[in-house]
């Protein structure tokens, strides 16, 4: 294993565009599995995907009326994500979370912590942050930094596997 780690690792880069619970789960399942296979994993969160990595507690602290309204309606946080289908005003999401717990599946919250411990790099898209008025301090501690399209593409170019979720 130590030798394998000394070699250049294969890269996996995942764009998380969606802020849906189901899609976020799929992204984190692949990220953690990739890390456990010895891959160097980067997750790039953009647009609605920023919701996945916002802090669960506190205000977003955005400036201007429209951005304040946007982040009020679109609060985000791993614990607030909903299903892309059958949300049914939260009932469907609540049921899905029950079912997941029933089979010992980690929540998105747990997946984020696990991913960070496994060395997965979590990056927030700085352009989305600017447009939507999400300051860096609105993100969880697991988020490594903000970066743009050039950073993503340079990672993607070196990656063996690139996914858009």
């Amino acid at each position: 294993m130590a030798e394998a780690e000394a070699e250049k690792k294969e890269k996996l880069t995942i764009v998380v565009f969606s802020g849906d619970l189901d899609r976020a789960l799929a992204a984190f399942m692949l990220a953690t599995t990739g890390a456990s296979m010895g891959m160097d994993v980067t997750m790039f969160f953009t647009f609605w995907g920023l919701n996945v990595i916002k802090k669960n507690e506190g205000g977003i602290g955005s400036k201007g009326l429209m951005r304040k309204m946007l982040n009020w309606m679109n609060r985000g946080g791993a614990k607030r994500l909903t299903l892309s289908k059958f949300n049914m005003m939260g009932l469907g999401t609540w049921m899905m979370k029950r079912l997941m717990k029933d089979v010992n599946m980690p929540s998105v919250e747990e997946f984020i912590k696990m991913a960070e411990q496994m060395g997965v790099k979590l990056i927030a898209c700085n352009t989305s942050c600017g447009v939507m008025g999400v300051p860096e301090k609105a993100f969880r501690a697991e988020v490594a930094s903000l970066a743009g399209a050039a950073y993503f593409l340079s990672e993607a170019r070196d990656s063996k596997v690139v996914l858009f979720v």
Binding site: M1, T33, A35, M37
Partner: peptide, 17 residues
Amino acid sequence: VGLYCPMPIVKTAAKIK
């Protein structure tokens, strides 16, 4: 036992380490 993908693999990787 009782764990679904990807947990057995993630745990195996940690244990093997």
